[in-house]
Nucleic acid binder design. Structure first.
Length: 140
DNA sequence: GCCAACGTTGGC
DNA sequence: GCCAACGTTGGC
């Protein structure tokens, strides 16, 4: 099983929206970046898990986690390019929001891709260690 | 609102 | 194929 981080602008779609969907399932679509597309197509698998990350707000960070039900689903083909999406399901909303500031301050989290300056990828891989540290922090 | 860090587009 | 100009993302 692999771990990921998916970005969303929470005023567009947030983890409560996901929790309120029928069966708490939603297609994660609209990804129009080739690197992220390739992850959806080739690397993200059923059974993986992902952080739900809030971007473009005063204090960005991780709000909770979701399950990947299916990935590499064709969303749209335009010109000669095929775009893919994943189906995600609500798993858990953290009792404590983990801010990017906290991630950057943590010695074992500050190397996370999302903490890198200028990082724009909307989907990034997360290591097993990073995953578990953030889960533990969310309980505290 | 500013700016860094890309990604994309289009002229050559 | 190169690169300048422009557009977008996203943190601050």
């Amino acid at each position: 099983m692999a771990f990921w981080l998916f970005k969303s602008e929470p005023y567009v779609f947030n983890i409560d929206d996901l929790a309120n969907r029928p069966k708490q399932i939603e297609p994660w679509n609209g990804v129009r970046n080739y690197q992220a597309r390739n992850m959806l197509r080739d690397h993200i698998k059923k059974g993986d898990q992902a952080f739900f990350y809030y971007s473009s707000i005063p204090a960005p960070g991780v709000a909770g986690i979701m399950d990947i039900l299916q990935s590499g689903v064709v969303e749209e083909t335009q010109n000669n390019t095929t775009w893919y999406m994943a189906y995600v399901r609500f798993k858990k909303k953290f009792s404590r929001f983990i801010t990017l500031e906290e991630i950057k301050a943590h010695p074992k989290l500050k190397t996370m891709q999302v903490a890198r300056r200028g990082n724009r990828l909307s989907i990034t891989p997360v290591t097993k260690e990073e995953w578990h540290i953030i889960l533990k922090l969310s309980l505290g």
